[in-house]
Design a protein around this nucleic acid. Structure first.
Lengths: 190, 190
DNA sequence: ACAGTTGCGTAACGGTTGTTATGTAATTGG
DNA sequence: CCAATTACATAACAACCGTTACGCAACTGT
């Protein structure tokens, strides 16, 4: 019944083209035709694997999530968890670019808005035990771990945005230094 | 020679329509026709006052800057300066929405990218003396004031984003509490 | 070998986009 | 009063958008 080609492999090709388009031009540049052109194929191929533009956008966000997860493998340490989201490598820079870019469309469309909110909640939930651990060894002051996780996530993402707009100023080394001195400043003395 | 209508007043009308469009739908929704429709006028009127779409985008960013400046009047205190950018009022929420939304197009277009970088640099420069003052009275630990300003700006903007996506969780009160406990945690216990 | 299914290029469709030209009414200075 | 200028609606324009339909080639199970 099924035809020759490896469906999943082809889908991954389209998927990769979607990523390249969004990584370079943001979500404003994501169109069926730009993906097709990036792939050197026709729009028919794109619609064959992704029925509509909504699904393309959805898929781009899933890709961002997958790549984020892949770039942050099983972290048990707060500093590492925060350092992992900073654009200190081309890979993470690309991912960050896509996330920040997605906020325009995510703020406009209620469904994507809810998705992004859920994503943030998951991130803070993942950060929470690391915060508690850091508190227990005296690396962080006492206080609501949720608020602390929010603050640290905020610090990290805010730094991401500044680094994206000013990569010359915020070299990888400088980003990590700022993170480290920030964490050091948060450590209660004794 | 000139005709009847008050040119500047009319221009402000168009300007207000531009703001309403961007505040509600983000930069993805900013088109000549959406502005005209918002104004109940024709596209001819819009192009009469703003020649091209580039200028419309540019103007929307200027508006955001103006409103930001207007909502942060002559701040001499670090906490107030940071609290002023948090979306704790409808007005600041609207402005924040526009800024975050603008990052998609700002990351894509080199000219807007440079503008946003400059804007961030100005903000940090304005924050710097407040940081130094806070350090001198023992509210902030010693260290590079530039790095501290970056970190505090990052914290604030990161909190802005989370609050925009989760206003139920981050009520104005909670935002300010998170800010205050964060600043308190940064105070060296000498 | 043939019927059925899949892969995907081609292309048409109606709608929207930014830009530009045209027309017309109203105002003003001489 | 008239020539010049401005304000703006109307609308044409080519380009582009997402979606859909069509058609053909290639493969598969029977």
């Amino acid at each position: 019944m099924p035809a020759k080609t490896d469906h999943d492999a082809r889908r991954r090709d389209v998927s990769a083209a979607v990523w390249r388009v969004v990584a370079e031009g943001g979500f404003g540049a994501l169109t069926l035709r730009s993906v097709a052109a990036e792939l050197g194929a026709s729009t028919g191929l794109v619609t064959h694997y992704f029925g509509s533009k909504q699904q393309l956008i959805r898929h781009a966000l899933e890709l961002a999530e997958d790549r984020t997860r892949a770039s942050i493998p099983e972290v048990t340490d707060l500093r590492t968890a925060l350092a992992a989201v900073l654009p200190t490598t081309p890979e993470v820079t690309e991912i960050s670019r896509v996330w920040v870019s997605s906020w325009d469309v995510a703020l406009a469309e209620p469904e994507l808005h809810a998705l992004e909110r859920a994503r943030y909640r998951r991130w803070r939930t993942r950060l929470r035990p690391l915060v508690i651990k850091a508190q227990s060894v005296g690396d962080l002051p006492p206080g609501d771990p949720g608020d602390l996780a929010t603050g640290l996530a905020a610090f990290a993402h805010g730094l991401v945005v500044q680094a994206l707009f000013d990569p010359t100023t915020y070299t990888p080394k400088r980003q990590l230094r700022i993170l480290d001195t920030h964490l050091a400043a948060l450590r209660p003395s004794d």
